[in-house]
Computed example of a mutant assay.
Amino acid sequence: MSIAEERIDILFDLARSAASDGEFDRSRKYVRLARRIAERNRCGLPREFKRFTCSRCDVALRPGVNARVRLNNGHVVIRCDCGATQRYPYK
């Protein structure tokens, strides 16, 4: 694991804890920094990072705090408070 990937993991953990505490601006800053590190070092983002960050407002998604999670016709549907929706299939 490279230094960049370790840093992305650390920033995602910080973003999730900030979102849990209701500090969405701080969470947004951590997510944007992690995405910038991934772009600069040309390493991909982990699946968990992609699925639990909002692509529209860049905040870490915490079910029950700032996101709704529903199951619908073989898909997991996650809706952020900003209105953005993500869908992905499950088996």
Rank of each mutant, 00 (worst) to 15 (best):
Y90H: 08
R16E: 13
P63S: 11
Q86K: 15
E48V: 03
D9P: 02
A84N: 15
E48K: 11
L14A: 05
C57Q: 00
L11T: 03
V59Q: 06
I10L: 06
A19C: 06
V76H: 07
R7Y: 09
N66R: 07
A4E: 10
F52P: 01
V77A: 00
R47Q: 13
R26H: 01
F12C: 07
A67V: 02
S17C: 05
D25S: 03
N66F: 05
N72Y: 14
F24D: 00
D25I: 02
A38M: 04
L33W: 02
V59T: 10
N41W: 15
K50Q: 10
R42Q: 14
S20A: 02
D9C: 09
C43I: 15
R62N: 04
F12K: 02
Y88I: 01
R32Y: 03
G22I: 12
P46H: 01
R87I: 11
E6P: 00
E48A: 09
T85D: 09
K50N: 06
I3Y: 09
R36F: 08
R56I: 05
D13N: 13
R28Q: 12
R87S: 15
L14E: 05
L71T: 10
F24C: 08
V31I: 15
K29M: 10
V59L: 00
D9F: 01
A67F: 06
V65G: 10
C82E: 07
D58K: 06
R51P: 04
R36K: 15
I10N: 00
D25E: 15
R62E: 13
R32V: 00
L61H: 00
L71C: 01
V31P: 09
L61P: 01
A4F: 02
R28I: 03
C43P: 01
Y88P: 08
E23R: 13
K50Y: 00
P89M: 03
C54H: 04
C80E: 09
G22P: 13
D13H: 12
R51G: 07
A18T: 07
E5G: 08
V77Y: 02
R40I: 14
L71K: 14
L14R: 03
R40L: 14
N72L: 13
N73A: 14
L33D: 12
H75S: 06
G44L: 10
L33I: 10
A67K: 04
P89N: 00
A15H: 08
R40W: 11
F24E: 06
G83C: 02
P46C: 11
R47L: 14
V69H: 04
A60V: 10
R16C: 08
S27M: 09
R47N: 11
I78W: 12
C80M: 04
R40T: 13
R47V: 13
R42A: 11
F49T: 09
F52S: 12
Y30D: 08
F49K: 07
S27K: 08
C80W: 02
Q86H: 12
V59S: 10
T85I: 15
K91G: 14
D25M: 01
V65W: 01
L45H: 12
T53V: 06
V69C: 11
R42Y: 10
R35H: 11
R79L: 04
T85P: 02
R16G: 07
V59M: 08
A4L: 06
K29L: 12
R7T: 11
A34Y: 00
